[in-house]
Amino acid sequence: MRTVLITGANKGIGFETARQLALAGNFVYLGSRDLLSGQKAADKLKAAGSANVAPIHIDVTDIESIRKAKDELNSLDLLINNAGISGEQAQHIAEYSMEAFRALFETNYFGAVQTTQVMLPLLRKSSAASIINVSSEIGSLTMQTSAERPPNWSNFSSYGATKTALNGFTVMLANELRGEHITVNSVTPGYTATDLNQFKGFKSVEEGARAIVQLAMLDDRTVTGRFFKDGGEIPW
Protein backbone atom coordinates (compact mmCIF):
# COMPACT_ATOMS: atom_id res chain seq x y z
CA MET A 1 0.00 0.00 0.00
CA ARG A 2 1.45 3.33 -1.09
CA THR A 3 1.24 6.43 1.07
CA VAL A 4 -0.13 9.50 -0.73
CA LEU A 5 -0.30 13.13 0.34
CA ILE A 6 -2.64 15.42 -1.59
CA THR A 7 -2.63 19.12 -0.75
CA GLY A 8 -5.95 20.95 -0.97
CA ALA A 9 -7.80 17.63 -0.73
CA ASN A 10 -10.80 18.58 1.39
CA LYS A 11 -12.89 19.55 -1.67
CA GLY A 12 -13.05 19.66 -5.44
CA ILE A 13 -10.57 17.79 -7.61
CA GLY A 14 -8.29 17.09 -4.65
CA PHE A 15 -11.09 15.36 -2.76
CA GLU A 16 -12.17 13.32 -5.78
CA THR A 17 -8.56 12.32 -6.48
CA ALA A 18 -8.25 11.18 -2.87
CA ARG A 19 -11.45 9.17 -3.19
CA GLN A 20 -10.32 7.38 -6.34
CA LEU A 21 -6.81 6.67 -5.09
CA ALA A 22 -8.12 5.36 -1.76
CA LEU A 23 -10.50 3.03 -3.60
CA ALA A 24 -7.51 1.81 -5.62
CA GLY A 25 -5.83 0.63 -2.41
CA ASN A 26 -3.58 3.55 -1.48
CA PHE A 27 -3.46 5.19 1.95
CA VAL A 28 -4.30 8.83 1.34
CA TYR A 29 -3.65 11.84 3.56
CA LEU A 30 -6.07 14.63 2.79
CA GLY A 31 -4.12 17.85 3.18
CA SER A 32 -6.14 20.89 4.21
CA ARG A 33 -5.46 24.40 5.52
CA ASP A 34 -8.35 23.90 7.93
CA LEU A 35 -8.09 20.63 9.83
CA LEU A 36 -11.83 20.55 10.58
CA SER A 37 -12.62 20.69 6.87
CA GLY A 38 -10.10 17.93 6.28
CA GLN A 39 -11.64 15.81 9.03
CA LYS A 40 -15.12 16.25 7.55
CA ALA A 41 -13.79 15.23 4.13
CA ALA A 42 -12.08 12.15 5.57
CA ASP A 43 -15.23 11.21 7.49
CA LYS A 44 -17.25 11.48 4.30
CA LEU A 45 -14.89 9.12 2.49
CA LYS A 46 -14.89 6.67 5.39
CA ALA A 47 -18.69 6.68 5.47
CA ALA A 48 -18.62 5.77 1.77
CA GLY A 49 -16.34 2.79 2.46
CA SER A 50 -12.80 4.19 2.19
CA ALA A 51 -11.17 3.40 5.52
CA ASN A 52 -7.62 4.08 4.35
CA VAL A 53 -7.75 7.89 4.55
CA ALA A 54 -6.79 10.47 7.16
CA PRO A 55 -6.81 14.27 7.39
CA ILE A 56 -3.62 16.23 7.86
CA HIS A 57 -3.23 19.94 8.47
CA ILE A 58 -1.03 21.64 5.88
CA ASP A 59 -1.01 25.22 4.63
CA VAL A 60 1.33 25.33 1.64
CA THR A 61 1.99 29.05 2.19
CA ASP A 62 3.25 28.39 5.76
CA ILE A 63 6.62 26.62 5.95
CA GLU A 64 6.15 25.66 9.60
CA SER A 65 2.80 24.07 8.77
CA ILE A 66 4.49 22.02 6.04
CA ARG A 67 7.27 20.93 8.38
CA LYS A 68 4.77 19.84 11.03
CA ALA A 69 2.87 17.83 8.42
CA LYS A 70 6.08 16.15 7.35
CA ASP A 71 6.83 15.19 10.96
CA GLU A 72 3.41 13.50 11.18
CA LEU A 73 4.17 11.23 8.23
CA ASN A 74 6.14 8.02 8.67
CA SER A 75 6.52 7.49 4.94
CA LEU A 76 5.55 9.03 1.62
CA ASP A 77 5.47 7.50 -1.85
CA LEU A 78 3.43 10.04 -3.80
CA LEU A 79 3.07 13.80 -3.36
CA ILE A 80 0.32 15.52 -5.33
CA ASN A 81 0.69 19.30 -5.26
CA ASN A 82 -2.95 20.18 -5.86
CA ALA A 83 -3.59 23.19 -3.60
CA GLY A 84 -4.20 26.31 -5.62
CA ILE A 85 -6.19 29.52 -5.97
CA SER A 86 -7.59 31.11 -9.12
CA GLY A 87 -7.60 34.77 -8.12
CA GLU A 88 -10.18 37.33 -9.15
CA GLN A 89 -11.00 37.77 -12.84
CA ALA A 90 -10.37 39.48 -15.12
CA GLN A 91 -6.66 39.33 -14.43
CA HIS A 92 -4.82 40.75 -17.40
CA ILE A 93 -1.12 40.82 -16.61
CA ALA A 94 -0.75 44.35 -18.00
CA GLU A 95 -2.85 45.76 -15.17
CA TYR A 96 -3.27 43.07 -12.50
CA SER A 97 -2.34 44.30 -9.04
CA MET A 98 1.03 43.09 -7.78
CA GLU A 99 -0.49 42.21 -4.42
CA ALA A 100 -2.97 39.85 -6.09
CA PHE A 101 -0.27 38.55 -8.44
CA ARG A 102 2.05 37.71 -5.55
CA ALA A 103 -0.80 35.96 -3.70
CA LEU A 104 -1.34 33.71 -6.71
CA PHE A 105 2.34 32.82 -6.92
CA GLU A 106 2.59 32.30 -3.16
CA THR A 107 0.07 29.47 -3.26
CA ASN A 108 0.24 28.07 -6.79
CA TYR A 109 4.01 28.14 -7.27
CA PHE A 110 5.99 28.79 -4.10
CA GLY A 111 3.55 26.66 -2.11
CA ALA A 112 4.20 23.67 -4.34
CA VAL A 113 7.95 24.25 -4.37
CA GLN A 114 8.39 24.50 -0.62
CA THR A 115 6.04 21.59 0.05
CA THR A 116 8.10 19.46 -2.32
CA GLN A 117 11.40 20.54 -0.77
CA VAL A 118 10.21 19.68 2.74
CA MET A 119 8.75 16.31 1.70
CA LEU A 120 11.72 15.19 -0.42
CA PRO A 121 13.55 13.43 2.47
CA LEU A 122 10.51 11.17 2.93
CA LEU A 123 10.13 10.60 -0.82
CA ARG A 124 13.79 9.64 -1.09
CA LYS A 125 13.16 6.77 1.34
CA SER A 126 10.57 5.29 -1.01
CA SER A 127 11.62 2.69 -3.55
CA ALA A 128 9.32 4.21 -6.18
CA ALA A 129 8.41 7.80 -5.36
CA SER A 130 6.52 10.24 -7.54
CA ILE A 131 5.62 13.94 -7.51
CA ILE A 132 2.62 15.19 -9.46
CA ASN A 133 2.07 18.91 -9.93
CA VAL A 134 -1.51 19.80 -10.81
CA SER A 135 -1.18 22.41 -13.55
CA SER A 136 -3.41 23.82 -16.29
CA GLU A 137 -3.41 23.97 -20.08
CA ILE A 138 -3.46 27.75 -19.62
CA GLY A 139 0.14 27.34 -18.44
CA SER A 140 1.17 25.77 -21.76
CA LEU A 141 3.22 28.24 -23.80
CA THR A 142 2.56 26.21 -26.93
CA MET A 143 -1.19 26.49 -26.47
CA GLN A 144 -0.95 30.15 -25.47
CA THR A 145 0.76 30.91 -28.80
CA SER A 146 -1.55 28.72 -30.87
CA ALA A 147 -4.05 30.18 -33.34
CA GLU A 148 -6.68 28.03 -31.59
CA ARG A 149 -6.08 29.71 -28.24
CA PRO A 150 -9.48 30.50 -26.64
CA PRO A 151 -9.92 34.30 -26.39
CA ASN A 152 -11.26 34.15 -22.83
CA TRP A 153 -7.91 32.82 -21.58
CA SER A 154 -6.82 36.44 -21.10
CA ASN A 155 -9.16 36.53 -18.12
CA PHE A 156 -6.87 34.00 -16.44
CA SER A 157 -3.48 35.30 -17.59
CA SER A 158 -2.02 35.84 -14.11
CA TYR A 159 -3.22 32.42 -12.95
CA GLY A 160 -1.78 30.93 -16.13
CA ALA A 161 1.60 32.49 -15.44
CA THR A 162 1.77 30.65 -12.11
CA LYS A 163 1.09 27.37 -13.91
CA THR A 164 3.76 28.10 -16.52
CA ALA A 165 6.20 28.58 -13.65
CA LEU A 166 4.98 25.36 -12.04
CA ASN A 167 5.59 23.51 -15.30
CA GLY A 168 9.13 24.88 -15.34
CA PHE A 169 9.62 23.59 -11.82
CA THR A 170 8.40 20.17 -12.95
CA VAL A 171 10.97 19.96 -15.75
CA MET A 172 13.90 21.26 -13.70
CA LEU A 173 13.15 19.01 -10.73
CA ALA A 174 12.60 15.97 -12.95
CA ASN A 175 16.06 16.52 -14.45
CA GLU A 176 17.64 16.89 -11.01
CA LEU A 177 16.02 13.74 -9.64
CA ARG A 178 16.48 11.36 -12.58
CA GLY A 179 19.37 9.60 -10.87
CA GLU A 180 17.28 9.10 -7.73
CA HIS A 181 14.40 7.29 -9.47
CA ILE A 182 11.82 9.85 -8.39
CA THR A 183 9.42 10.78 -11.17
CA VAL A 184 8.09 14.33 -11.51
CA ASN A 185 5.29 15.24 -13.88
CA SER A 186 2.65 17.92 -14.48
CA VAL A 187 -0.98 17.14 -15.21
CA THR A 188 -3.98 19.27 -16.14
CA PRO A 189 -7.46 18.17 -15.07
CA GLY A 190 -9.04 20.45 -17.68
CA TYR A 191 -11.80 22.99 -17.13
CA THR A 192 -13.53 21.26 -14.24
CA ALA A 193 -16.54 22.58 -12.34
CA THR A 194 -15.21 23.49 -8.87
CA ASP A 195 -15.32 26.53 -6.61
CA LEU A 196 -12.02 27.55 -8.21
CA ASN A 197 -14.07 28.77 -11.19
CA GLN A 198 -17.48 29.27 -9.52
CA PHE A 199 -18.47 25.83 -10.90
CA LYS A 200 -18.43 27.10 -14.49
CA GLY A 201 -16.21 24.29 -15.79
CA PHE A 202 -17.69 21.80 -18.26
CA LYS A 203 -16.04 18.71 -16.74
CA SER A 204 -17.23 16.93 -13.61
CA VAL A 205 -14.80 16.41 -10.72
CA GLU A 206 -14.80 12.69 -11.57
CA GLU A 207 -13.66 13.54 -15.10
CA GLY A 208 -11.18 16.15 -13.88
CA ALA A 209 -9.52 13.79 -11.41
CA ARG A 210 -9.17 11.03 -13.98
CA ALA A 211 -5.94 12.31 -15.55
CA ILE A 212 -4.35 12.78 -12.13
CA VAL A 213 -5.32 9.28 -11.00
CA GLN A 214 -4.14 7.72 -14.26
CA LEU A 215 -0.73 9.33 -13.82
CA ALA A 216 -0.62 8.41 -10.12
CA MET A 217 -1.27 4.76 -10.93
CA LEU A 218 1.27 4.59 -13.76
CA ASP A 219 3.90 1.89 -13.21
CA ASP A 220 6.35 3.06 -15.89
CA ARG A 221 9.22 4.63 -13.95
CA THR A 222 10.77 6.13 -17.11
CA VAL A 223 7.93 8.64 -17.47
CA THR A 224 9.19 11.87 -15.93
CA GLY A 225 9.45 15.55 -16.83
CA ARG A 226 6.27 15.43 -18.93
CA PHE A 227 2.89 17.16 -19.07
CA PHE A 228 -0.33 15.15 -19.25
CA LYS A 229 -4.06 15.57 -19.73
CA ASP A 230 -6.86 13.03 -19.82
CA GLY A 231 -6.06 10.84 -22.80
CA GLY A 232 -2.43 11.72 -23.39
CA GLU A 233 0.28 14.36 -23.31
CA ILE A 234 -0.01 18.10 -23.71
CA PRO A 235 2.76 20.34 -25.11
CA TRP A 236 4.73 22.60 -22.82
Rank of each mutant, 00 (worst) to 15 (best):
M1K: 14
S50A: 14
S126I: 03
Q89S: 05
M217V: 00
R67I: 07
P150D: 03
A193L: 01
V60D: 09
A47T: 06
A42T: 10
E176G: 01
T115K: 02
T164Q: 07
T7W: 06
S154Q: 14
E99Y: 12
S75D: 14
I58H: 03
A42D: 07
S136D: 11
K229N: 09
I85P: 11
I56A: 10
V187R: 00
S126Y: 11
F15S: 06
N82E: 09
H92W: 10
S136Q: 06
R33T: 00
L30E: 12
L36S: 11
S136M: 07
A83V: 06
E176F: 03
G38R: 02
S158V: 05
T224D: 10
N81V: 06
T116H: 02
G84A: 10
S65Q: 06
L76N: 11
K68I: 12
I182Q: 09
A128G: 12
A161K: 00
E148H: 13
S130E: 13
A54W: 00
A174L: 04
I63T: 13
N10E: 11
I132E: 09
L21V: 09
R2L: 04
V134Q: 04
L35R: 12
T162W: 06
V184H: 04
P235W: 04
S127P: 07
A83G: 11
A83L: 07
E207T: 13
F228N: 02
T61L: 09
S127C: 02
L104D: 02
K203P: 02
E206D: 12
T107V: 15
F169L: 14
L177S: 04
S130W: 05
F228K: 00
H57P: 00
G208F: 04
V205Q: 01
L123M: 10
S158L: 08
Y159D: 01
S37Q: 15
P150F: 00
N82Y: 07
R19H: 04
L21N: 08
R67L: 08
Y159E: 06
T194P: 01
F110P: 11
T145N: 15
A54Y: 01
E95C: 06
G225Y: 11
G231D: 01
A48Q: 15
N175Q: 14
F202T: 15
E99K: 15
K44S: 15
N197L: 04
S65N: 07
A112M: 14
K203R: 15
D59L: 01
L141A: 13
A69I: 04
S157M: 14
S154R: 08
L166D: 08
A94V: 14
S140P: 11
T107E: 07
K68Q: 15
A47W: 02
S97I: 01
A42R: 01
T162A: 08
Q214P: 01
P150T: 05
G190A: 04
G87L: 05
G201S: 03
T7A: 08
T192Y: 00
T194Q: 01
L120S: 05
